[in-house]
Amino acid sequence: MPHPNPTTPSPAPRRATLASALALPALLLAGLPARADWSLLNMPVGVTPVSREVYDLHMLILWICTIIAVATFGAMAYALVAFRKSKGAVADTNMTHSTAAEIIWTVIPVVILVFMAFQAAPALIRIEDTRNSEMTIKITGYQWKWEYEYLNEGVSLFSSLAADSNAARRKNAGIDPRSVENYLLEVDEPLVVPAGVKIRYLITANDVLHAWWVPDFAVKRDAIPGYVNEGWFQVDEPGIYRGQCAELCGKDHGFMPVVVKVVPKAEFDAWLAARKAPAAVAAAN
């Protein structure tokens, strides 16, 4: 299921959180805290072809690992129970090696890994394919904001942490972060892109490394000063998608969110035109 806005704060009261956390050792055995927001336990499926593919890959390897874990840990648990000295188990000291066993537990993992590689490699090739894009946006990371340039359109904008988050995130600000909508995940001006269009982005940085990440798009690419990286995404569903800078970039690394507003094509064109107008005025002056 897509998450048009996966970052809505969970509304639960704080006391319940504390209680469940305090009872944790017991609860951990019984299961996870009942009040947790279950969608927050796993990777979002996301809203792009790539993100769905990555999600499927993630679930596949997660399940493979789980199955191997169940088998391995099951055998271990069995050994811990069945071969205890207190139950009268006597050590079979002649059991010291077995070439057959060694071959089996080498070959089976090899087969599993080859299978995984065959799933992962084509996905990687598709993700890296930036051809046939319809528009290009240049993203530049700064300490601590993003700049978005619509190449060949003459439009660009800066995007930094929204004012209310910025006020609440000061040390001992006295503002409860929970009272701020989309705390730390809101910007003054989001990146606006059209829905249903393959968008190529070029990314670089002005000072130090940054990384542009939107979990719902499953794209994360480093912004490197002096070099340009590229990637792409295509979102079919209009909505607001949020992410964060994902490469340590100094003291406000935690405070440079990414917000992408995906709008229908027509709306986007109108927005772009409106954006161009003041720019044209400025150029005329």
Partner: peptide, 9 residues
């Protein structure tokens, strides 16, 4: 694969 580096920067 980093051809754009040159073109852009």
């Amino acid at each position: 694969s980093d051809a754009v580096t040159n073109a852009v920067l």
